[in-house]
């Protein structure tokens, strides 16, 4: 058994070496496809993370009417802080809100200065325990309408975004499947070229009594090696993209993205290698069988 495995690996490595260019093309196609798959997984993973964070971060912004006196605002803050489901309440004065906005959007500094320091209303930033996530509406209803002009907790937006995300996942799955199928055919045709390159040799093997399994096995090993190499290149590419591009995106969209952008965890990386391997082995299997069906 060991001897047969050794023989299969020796024949596979020899073929890889003798058809280095075509095998490199196969590995390249697998790498490109796996990289796309990795990008898809990465986006999905991070967006899911982000939404999870939003879900856990049950947070309300309650904006005071401008005519509510400051002492009353502090009293209201203390009343709300006494609620058992409230984790934290922070009072943000109109001046503080203005300064925050100026710091975040320096280009708007002149406009904000002209509008005056009380342009933005004072507010309470309220954090609730995660257990209250589902009845945030009810909590918002307990807040006095005479004190607050507007209460914003973005739940509706999150729900809409989750709907959009589901659609995006579906589209991603469809596109991903199409890309994988296209790659499968592309790799299969490249392997077919390798097979035809060795047509004479394979026909001779058949004539001396080689079984289909004997002929197919080294191609499957070649496919596996191509797949693993392709996945490795995709992994390196993905790590590079994460390090360079994603870091910049994070800086650019700091306002919008609150969750920490993360690299794919172990199980996702394993999926990447499994996908590459399946692509390589599957394409090799289909290509060799297509050839063997024509040879007697």
């Amino acid at each position: 058994m060991t001897q047969r495995l050794q023989l299969v690996f020796r024949r596979a490595l020899r073929s890889l070496w003798e058809n280095a260019y075509l095998n490199a093309v196969s590995a390249g196609v697998i790498a490109a496809t796996t990289l796309l798959f990795g990008v898809y997984l990465s986006v999905q993973f991070n967006v899911n993370n982000m939404v999870d964070t939003w879900d856990k971060d049950v947070h309300l912004s309650a904006y005071f009417h401008p005519d509510v006196p400051e002492q009353r605002r502090f009293n209201v803050r203390d009343e709300i802080a006494a609620h058992p489901e409230v984790i934290k309440v922070r009072y943000v004065s109109s001046d503080a809100a203005n300064l925050w906005m100026q710091a975040r959007m320096p280009a708007m500094e002149t406009v904000l200065a002209e509008l005056g320091s009380d342009t933005l209303p004072a507010s309470l930033e309220i954090s609730l325990s995660a257990a209250r996530a589902n009845d945030i509406d009810a909590f918002a209803g307990t807040l006095s309408v005479t004190d607050f002009s507007d209460i914003d907790y973005g739940q509706e937006w999150i729900e809409k975004f989750q709907g959009f995300l589901s659609l995006l996942k579906l589209l991603g799955a469809v596109m991903g499947s199409l890309i994988l199928i296209a790659a499968l055919f592309l790799v299969m045709n490249t392997v077919h070229l390798v097979v035809y390159n060795r047509k004479n040799e394979l026909e001779i093997q058949k004539l001396v009594g080689a079984t289909d399994g004997y002929i197919t096995a080294p191609f499957l090993v070649e496919g596996l090696i191509q797949g693993l190499l392709g996945a490795m290149f995709a992994f390196i590419g993905l790590a590079a993209v994460h390090r360079l591009l994603v870091a910049r995106l994070k800086d650019t969209f700091e306002l919008a993205i609150t969750a920490e952008l993360q690299f794919l965890p172990g199980p996702y990386i394993a999926m990447l290698f499994v996908a590459g391997s399946l692509l390589g082995v599957g394409a090799a299997f289909l290509a060799v069988n297509r050839f063997l069906a024509k040879v007697t």
């Binding site: 001897q3 047969r4 023989l7 093997q205 001396v208 009594g209 080689a210 004997y214």
Partner: peptide, 8 residues
């Protein structure tokens, strides 16, 4: 040797 190799 091919004819023997396929026989294992």
């Amino acid at each position: 040797g091919l004819a023997l190799e396929v026989l294992g």
